[in-house]
């Protein structure tokens, strides 16, 4: 990693935090839980890291444990992602979907 890359990553990090702060303003209380649950599903983005980590060959006996760790991470992240979006969807169908007949 070069200093330029690191500075780029830090820039991304800081600006995204500011964006995240601005994104959420006034949220009605009935949406607190779905918003939390939806955001939670997005935090399962570490699935990307797990995918990259699990992509290892299992022939030479090398990198076995790191591969297993990444595999477990992949399973957990997928549970978080799929379960999180599905449960959010269920909640929203009940509260937001039926309102005002649309």
């Amino acid at each position: 990693m070069t200093p330029e890359l690191l500075i780029g990553a830090i820039t991304l990090f800081v600006l995204s935090i500011f964006l995240g702060v601005e994104l959420i303003t006034k949220v009605p209380s009935m949406l607190h839980t779905p918003l939390m649950s939806g955001a939670n599903a997005i935090s399962g983005i570490s699935v990307v890291g797990a995918l990259l980590g699990a992509n290892v060959a299992y022939d030479g006996g090398q990198t076995v444990i790191s591969g297993i760790l990444a595999f477990v991470a992949l399973v957990l992240a997928m549970i978080n992602v799929v379960g999180g979006f599905a449960v959010t969807n269920r909640m929203l169908n009940m509260i937001a979907g039926k309102k005002r007949g649309d």
Binding site: I17, G20, A39, I45
Partner: peptide, 9 residues
């Protein structure tokens, strides 16, 4: 995505 969730959360 991580910092978005972190901040908005």
């Amino acid at each position: 995505a991580g910092s978005l969730v972190g901040a908005s959360g």
